[in-house]
């Protein structure tokens, strides 16, 4: 009946299922998954990498609805990852597990209120919280870097809560997909 418990149930059910994130895909998976023998992808020539069946591929970053979530939002002065972000944490952690060569930069941001220097620390805390959540799901520490921008790089420059809530975020930026 209530949408939130249902979402939670789906999220919890997903934890145990390796390929559950495919359920939220916007587009169908590629007809022929990148086969280990297919040399046409430039990647196969640069890295001797063999994706497991059901593993994410680089193309999923743009196709998979869950992987396309690239920002997590935070409450004022808080650095805890919200429960609504758990699904995206799981699929990004799986992507990092499936692709050990992938590198992710987590960019921590705050809203404009208060000290710039303190906000730089707060942005780092948010980035670290996301990094720890990813690592708890099996991502390697060497794959994830945290860079805090504090209040220096807002998405939105108006002084109201609608804008501030957009600026309290961690952006996920794959530097190596």
């Amino acid at each position: 009946m209530h949408p939130i418990p249902r979402l939670l149930f789906v999220a919890m059910a997903c934890v145990g299922m390796a390929a559950c994130s495919k359920k939220v895909k916007e587009t169908p998976p590629p007809a022929t998954p990148a086969a280990p023998t297919a040399p046409s992808t430039g990647e196969a020539t640069t890295a001797p990498y063999t994706p497991k069946p059901g593993a994410y591929t680089q193309a999923d970053l743009d196709r998979d609805a869950c992987l396309r979530i690239r920002a997590f939002y935070f409450d004022l002065d808080r650095d805890n990852v919200k429960s609504e972000a758990q699904n995206a944490i799981l699929c990004h952690a799986k992507y990092l597990r499936d692709r050990p060569m992938a590198r992710l930069t987590l960019e921590g941001h705050t809203d404009e209120r208060g000290s710039q220097e303190y906000n730089l620390g707060l942005g780092e805390r948010r980035g670290n919280a996301v990094a720890q959540a990813l690592q708890a799901q099996g991502a390697s520490a060497s794959q994830v870097i945290v860079v805090s921008y504090g209040e220096e790089r807002p998405e939105c420059r108006e002084s109201n809560e609608a804008c501030w809530s957009q600026n309290r975020r961690v952006d996920l930026n794959y530097t190596v997909p």
């Binding site: 220097e117 730089l120 620390g121 780092e124 870097i145 945290v146 805090s148």
Partner: peptide, 13 residues
């Protein structure tokens, strides 16, 4: 100019 610190993490203030 000269870069005096560029450690991983925050270099500020």
């Amino acid at each position: 100019r000269e870069r005096v610190t560029s450690f991983p993490g925050i270099n500020s203030a």
